[in-house]
Structures are given as C-alpha cells and as structure tokens.
C-alpha cells in the first residue's frame, strides 16, 4: 500500500470533497492501483534525460499587450450563484 486512508482524507479535505467511509476505502484502493500502475514508469532508466513539463514541443506562445473588450460587469456576473450590485457575493471569509 502506497497510500493510506488518512492520505485520502487529507487530499479530500484540501480539495473540499466530502467522502463517506465506504468511499474512503474504495478511493484508497483505487488510488493505490493507479500509483502502482504509474510506478511501472519508474522502471525506465531516465538518467541524463532533462525533466520536461510538456509533451508537445511548443515554446514561447505569446500574446501582444493589446486591450480587447472585456465581458462587462453584467455578463461577468451572469453565472454567479450569488451577486449583489456589481459584486460577486460569497460567505464571509474573515471574522
């Protein structure tokens, strides 16, 4: 076992996910399977291979510094679960 139930609980908490006890067991088993599978890659000798962050050989994709029209406040707020005036409204985050 690479991963324990408490690891699952920790990751779930960081991701703000609520998981039931049976789910914890299930996810622990599934995540362990995934990690074991990924471990297969470690069998490959990568000595002298530079780490890479992308699978495609593209670099320097830039944008010019030119202002284009934004959505506007009304559209920006259109999908908000809660809004007030020109603002998104959220539960208070400090006391």
């Amino acid at each position: 076992m690479k991963l324990s139930t408490s690891d699952v609980e920790y990751v779930a908490k960081l991701a703000r996910l609520e998981v039931t006890e049976p789910e914890k067991e299930m996810f622990t088993a599934q995540l362990n399977d995934i990690l074991l599978y990924i471990d297969k890659l470690n069998e490959l000798d990568t000595t002298g291979v530079a780490p890479m962050t992308h699978a495609i050989a593209v670099q320097n994709a830039f944008r010019e510094d030119k202002v284009l029209e934004s959505l506007g406040t009304k559209k920006a707020l259109a999908n908000a679960p809660d809004a007030r005036g020109e603002f998104f409204r959220v539960p208070k985050v400090i006391e």
Partner: peptide
C-alpha cells in the same frame, strides 16, 4: 505596468467599475 493582464486581453487599469475588466479566462 502592462496594458493588459498576464494571460488575457483584459485591461489592468486601476479603479474601473467592479468586475468590468473580466473575461472567461480571468474569471
């Protein structure tokens, strides 16, 4: 001090009406 945001073309101007400089990328 750029005219636009780092990953989209919205203006960086200070003091605009709230949420007026927003687009799908920065939202």
């Amino acid at each position: 001090l750029t005219d636009t945001k780092i990953f989209c073309n919205c203006s960086t101007k200070f003091g605009g009406a709230p949420n007026s400089h927003a687009c799908p990328v920065c939202l």
